[in-house]
């Protein structure tokens, strides 16, 4: 049980790493679904070059 209840620097490291990953994943969802199209386009070809 002790392995899941850390103290000191280990606790801080765990919280930073876990929250960091969760924020990163949420940010990915935001990038995927919650962005305006004009900001999304990286260049002018709109990805219809070939197919």
């Amino acid at each position: 049980m002790d392995m899941y209840y850390l103290t000191g620097w280990e606790l801080i490291t765990e919280k930073v790493l876990q929250i960091g990953m969760l924020v990163f994943l949420i940010w990915n969802v935001k990038l995927l679904f919650l962005e305006k199209k004009d900001y999304v386009d990286g260049d002018d070809d709109h990805g219809n070059e070939q197919i």
């Binding site: 990915n28 990038l31 995927l32 999304v40 386009d41 709109h46 990805g47 219809n48 197919i51």
Partner: peptide
């Protein structure tokens, strides 16, 4: 994420 986004954008 970029791949899925690009697929949705390309709408082949």
């Amino acid at each position: 994420t970029g791949f899925i986004k690009q697929l949705m954008k390309d709408k082949p």
